[in-house]
Amino acid sequence: MTEDDPETGPEHKGAEPQRGPIRILIAKPGLDGHDRGAKVVARALRDAGMEVIYTGLHQTPEMIVRSAIQEDVDCIGMSILSGAHMTLFPAVLQLLKEEGATDIVVFGGGIIPKGDIEALKAQGVGELFGPGVKMDEIVAWVRGVVGARE
C-alpha cells in the first residue's frame, strides 16, 4: 500500500533530497514477551516508507541506547506493557544525555496512566500512545517531529 500512496516516500524524498528516509528504532524493554503491538507499529512505519530497526525482546535501556546510536536513528519508539514505564523511559533519556544523543526523539506506547504521561512528557518523552490509537496517527506524529527538526 505504500508505493502508490502519495503521502509517503516520494513526497518526503522530494522535500529533503539529501536525506534518506526517517530511521526509527522500535524497542521492547523488560522481561515480558508482549511484542504484538511493537511489531504492528514497526510494520506500519515501514509500510509508510520509514526505515525501521526492531530490537527484538528483552532489551535493557543500555542495549536500546547502544543500538539507537549505532543505527543512527531519528527516533526511538518503546513499547511497554509491564507497568515499568516510570523507570524505563527515564533510564533511556538519561543514557541518551550521557551519550550526547539528545537529538534522538523518544516516544512510546502502552497502558500508561494520565498522570504518568504528563510526568514523562515533562522529562522529555515526545509522545505516548495509548490503546486504540490509529497507526496513521503514529506515522503522522513521527513525520511531524522528525520533519520539524530538519
Partner: peptide
Amino acid sequence: SLMGYDADHKRSLGEVGRE
C-alpha cells in the same frame, strides 16, 4: 520466575512480584 532469574538478580529489578 518465568525467565529464570532469582528475585535478587540484576535483570529482576522492578519486576519482582509485579505480574
